[in-house]
């Protein structure tokens, strides 16, 4: 295991300068996510145009993995349909948890999260934003927790 494998330049960059950081006013959907283990807190705002995610913002406090993952996610799902976003999440989930998971080109920059699977304690950090996005899309009101 090499730290540079976890903290790749893309991750460090998105942690330092998160993209789409901020809020969206109603009627954008919003959901809160919480990782009680490390205190990460995240709110995801999604603006839908029919079935398409027209805009997405997030805000919160978290470790580099959770912030970078949310930032990368925001770039990746903007402009996509909900079904596409779900499919992407499945790929990311595999990437984070399966040693033999492929890294298909469709992942784009999200592939930078590959190193996380070598650090099992950090998988939840990377997946929190996706769970929260899912909750926002479902229109749930209860905060999402990784526990």
């Amino acid at each position: 295991m090499d730290l540079k494998d976890l903290y790749r330049d893309v991750i460090l960059d998105h942690n330092k300068r998160p993209r789409n950081f901020g809020t969206l006013p109603p009627p954008a959907h919003e959901a809160r996510g919480h990782n009680p283990l490390c205190g990460d807190q995240l709110t995801v705002y999604v603006e839908l145009d029919g079935d398409v995610i027209r805009d997405l913002r997030f805000e919160g406090k978290g470790c580099a993995i959770s912030v970078a993952s949310a930032s990368l996610m925001s770039e990746a799902v903007k402009g996509r349909s909900r079904a596409d976003a779900n499919a992407l999440y499945e790929q990311v989930h595999d990437l984070l948890t399966r040693q033999d998971a492929p890294s298909p080109p469709s992942l784009g920059k999200l592939a930078a999260l590959q190193g996380v699977r070598e650090f099992p304690a950090r998988v939840k950090c990377a997946s929190l934003c996706w769970h929260t996005l899912n909750a926002a899309l479902e229109g749930g009101v209860a905060p999402v927790s990784t526990e």
Binding site: L3, Y7, C38, G62, C63, A64, I65, A121, R122, C125
Partner: peptide, 14 residues
Amino acid sequence: DGVHPHDLGTILDQ
């Protein structure tokens, strides 16, 4: 500043 405690924990562990 700029480094979350959780990241510190992982970095120190290595």
